[in-house]
Write a protein that binds this DNA or RNA. Structure first.
Lengths: 207, 207
DNA sequence: AAGAAACGACTGGTCTGACCACCGTTCTAG
DNA sequence: CTAGAACGGTGGTCAGACCAGTCGTTTCTT
C-alpha cells in the first residue's frame, strides 16, 4: 500500500489502488479482480478494509460480486446508485430543476455535435431508423448521444436520464413525426432549425 | 434487521435501514447518526457489516465521518462520487478530446443559461468585477457557472476543469478585454453574440 | 478559586481469525 | 463412463481485540 497518509482512510487508498490496477492492466468490464484475500495480502491491509472499498464500489455499480466466484468489473450504467441517490437526495426541488435543465441542455449539446460532426451517411441511416423503428424517448436520444462518439456525454446523459426518470414527471410523449423532423433538421445542418425542432419535441417555450 | 432475504447482502439492508431511519426521524444534514456499535446492536448485525454500509454511503458523499466524534449526515455535494466516477470512466484514449469538447460545451450551456436567466443587476455586477479584478480563466468561468445556480453544472464543470488542467494544454491566455467583451455580450442578451464572443475568447473556429 | 493536566468514556479505524455458503474442478466409487 | 463426493478457492458475516482521536469530567497544581 502506498504510503497512506495518516489522514487518509485505508479504504480510500484501496479504491485508488484498484483504479490504478485497472488502468495498468487495462481491465475491461467483465474482467476479474483479484480476490479479497489476495488484495489484502498484496496491499498489506486487512481484509475488512479491502471489503469496505469493494462494497463501496459495488454500491456505486462499478464492480459486481458473485459469491463463490469472485469480483468483476462491471459496465457502468447507473443502476442502484441512481435509485439510491434519488431516494436520498431528490427531495430538493432545486435538484429537480437542475436535473431537468441539465438533461435538456446536454441533449441539445449532443444534437449540436451531431450537426457539426456526424456524416451524412450516418444521419441518413439514423433517419430511416427513426422513421421505421419503434422506440422510446430514451432510446431515441441514446442514439443521438451515441452518435456524438463522446463517451463523457454518454455517461453523463445516462446518469441524467436515470435521475430524470426517477422523478416520475408525466410528460407528453412526442410523436414519431417530431423525432423524424428533428433528424431532418440535423440533416439540413442548420443550428436554429435543430434547436427549434428540439424545443417543439420537448414542448418547451424558452427552455 | 428486517428478515434479510438470503439473497440480499446485509450491508444493502443496512443502507436501506439507514435511509428509513433518516426519513422517520427526519434527520437533516449535520445531524448525527447512531454510532457503529449501536447500529450493529440495534440491527443485530456485525459491526463490520455496518461499516461496509457506512463506507459505501461515505464514498457516495451522503454521510461524513469524524473519528472520535461520530457519523453525520452530509449536505449532499457529489464530491468524490463524481470525481471517482470520472476517474473510473475517463481512462480512455479519446477521453482527452471528450474532455475538451465537453468542457467547452458546458461552458457555453452556462453562458446560455445566464443569458436567459440571470438578472441585469447580477450581470452588471459581474461586469464590473470582470473589468477591475484580477482572475484566472478558471476563476472567471467558475463565476459564470455559479451564476447559473445549477448545482449539477457546477459539479460537472469543476471536475471537467480539473481534468482539463491536468492535460497541460498550452493555451493562449485570453485578454481581459475578451472576458469583459463576453460579459458585455451576455448583457445584450443576444445568443449569437455570446457564442461568438466565447469562440473568440477560446480561439475556436467551429466548435 | 482558576487554570491546567490527567483521566475515562465513547467513537471511528484497522486487523485477525474464525465460520458459513457457494462455485468449480478433481478425484473416486460404482 | 458417469454420478457423486471431496477439496480448494471465493465472497459473506461475525466477534473481539487494539489503536487513535474527541470531549467532558475530575483532579491536581498554582
Amino acid at each position: 500500500m502506498s504510503q497512506s497518509q495518516k489522514d487518509t482512510k485505508i479504504y480510500i487508498e484501496i479504491v485508488k489502488e484498484l483504479r490504478l490496477m485497472i488502468e495498468r492492466n487495462n481491465l475491461k468490464p467483465g474482467d476479474k479482480l483479484p480476490s479479497e484475500r489476495e488484495l489484502s495480502e498484496r496491499l498489506n491491509v486487512g481484509r475488512s478494509s479491502v471489503r469496505e472499498a469493494l462494497r463501496a464500489l459495488e454500491l456505486l455499480g462499478l464492480i459486481e460480486t458473485r459469491r463463490g466466484e469472485g469480483t468483476y468489473i462491471r459496465d457502468y450504467g447507473g443502476h442502484q446508485l441512481v435509485q439510491l441517490l434519488s431516494t436520498f437526495i431528490l427531495q430538493d426541488e432545486n435538484a429537480k430543476r437542475d436535473i431537468i435543465e441539465t438533461k435538456y441542455l446536454i441533449e441539445l449539446d449532443c444534437l449540436w455535435l451531431n450537426l457539426h460532426k456526424t456524416s451524412n451517411d450516418q444521419l441518413q441511416e439514423f433517419k430511416s431508423w427513426a422513421e421505421t423503428a419503434s422506440y422510446t424517448d430514451d432510446e431515441f436520444f441514446l442514439k443521438v448521444v451515441r452518435l456524438t462518439e463522446n463517451h463523457l456525454f454518454l455517461r453523463m446523459w445516462i446518469i441524467l436520464k436515470d435521475y430524470y426518470n426517477s422523478l416520475h414527471l408525466d410528460q407528453m410523449v412526442p410523436s414519431k413525426e417530431e423525432y423524424v423532423q428533428l433528424v431532418d433538421m440535423l440533416i439540413t445542418r442548420k443550428e436554429s432549425l435543430v434547436g427549434n425542432a428540439y424545443k417543439t419535441l420537448r414542448k418547451l417555450s424558452k427552455i
